[in-house]
Simulated assay, not measured.
Amino acid sequence: MPGMTAYGGFFELGCPKKGERVFVSAASGAVGQLVGQFAKLIDCYVVGSAGTQEKVDILKNKLGFDEAFNYKEELDMDAALKRYFPEGIDIYFENVGGKTLDAVLLNMRSNGRIPVCGMISQYNLTQQEGVTNLAHLFYKEIRMEGLIVSKFYHLYPKFLEFVLPHIREGKIAYVEDIVEGLESGPSALIGLFSGQNFGKKIVAIARE
């Protein structure tokens, strides 16, 4: 499911072109890590954000992102994005929402695309954060569209045709976060909302 989400969201809604500038928030997540790698396969410039230096290092050194940064160390997200995208962002793959989305809107290029996969920063808030820069959607003619993976199920054969050769050639890596035992389930779920995982969080009930 993360693979199909990344494939459908990036290629069908993001409509990427070679050489475009791509920003992936929550890039160490199950979907984000694949979006970044898919973008690199078509020669895009890719930057990801994550919540620890360890995750940043994995994004850059294992998964091939051009750059990555720890958003928790950035006091000004707008300034951070201008540092990594001095010419602006063509595609923002949205997984976080809130202040990150607000800053991204300031840094999008004309005719940019924003596939919206999730908004993890907002899920457990009693009142969601307001986004104040939405006017940039029409100033810059940006297309922002939400997605659910079931929308792309019909593309599954096309997805396999794309992804399997790259996996065999070692051009796509995938990191999973596995914990042992059913008793680990509740803490594993809670950890998703504080960024404790890298990749898909899996609870291994039994090894046989």
Rank of each mutant, 00 (worst) to 15 (best):
E141D: 12
H136M: 14
G146V: 05
K171P: 02
D177I: 07
G195H: 01
E141I: 06
V179L: 03
P165N: 10
P186G: 02
I142V: 15
I172L: 15
L147A: 13
P157S: 09
Y139M: 11
E176V: 05
L134E: 02
V163T: 08
V163K: 00
S187Q: 14
E161G: 01
V175G: 01
P157K: 09
S150F: 15
G181L: 07
L164E: 11
I167L: 15
V163I: 15
R168P: 00
L147H: 03
K140Y: 10
E145I: 05
V175M: 11
L155C: 01
Y174T: 06
E169Q: 14
L192R: 04
L189N: 01
S194A: 08
I190L: 13
G170M: 06
V179I: 09
D177T: 05
P186A: 04
S194M: 06
R168G: 02
E141H: 11
T132E: 12
I178Y: 10
L137A: 10
V149R: 02
S194G: 09
L155S: 01
Y139L: 13
I178K: 14
E169V: 00
A135L: 14
G185V: 13
L160E: 12
H136S: 12
V163R: 00
L160P: 00
H154V: 03
H166M: 04
G191T: 04
I167K: 04
V163M: 08
V149I: 09
V175R: 11
E183F: 08
H154S: 12
N133D: 05
I142M: 07
L134Q: 06
L189M: 14
G185Q: 03
R143T: 13
K140M: 04
F162K: 02
L164N: 06
E161V: 00
E169W: 00
N133M: 04
F152A: 05
P186R: 05
V163F: 01
L160S: 00
L155P: 00
I148C: 04
H136A: 14
G170Y: 09
E141K: 14
G146I: 05
K151L: 09
L155Q: 05
T132L: 13
E161D: 15
P157E: 09
G146N: 05
L134T: 12
A173C: 08
E141L: 10
E176S: 06
N133T: 05
E180V: 07
Y153F: 14
E176R: 07
T132W: 12
P165Q: 09
I167M: 12
I167P: 02
T132Q: 12
R143P: 00
H154L: 01
I167V: 15
F162E: 02
H136T: 09
F162L: 04
V175T: 15
V149E: 08
G185I: 12
L147G: 01
P157Q: 09
L160Q: 12
S187P: 00
K140Q: 10
P186T: 02
A188C: 11
E145K: 14
I148V: 15
V179T: 14
P186K: 07
D177A: 03
I142D: 02
K151W: 13
K151R: 15
L192F: 10
L137M: 13
Y174N: 11
A173M: 03
K151G: 03
E183M: 08
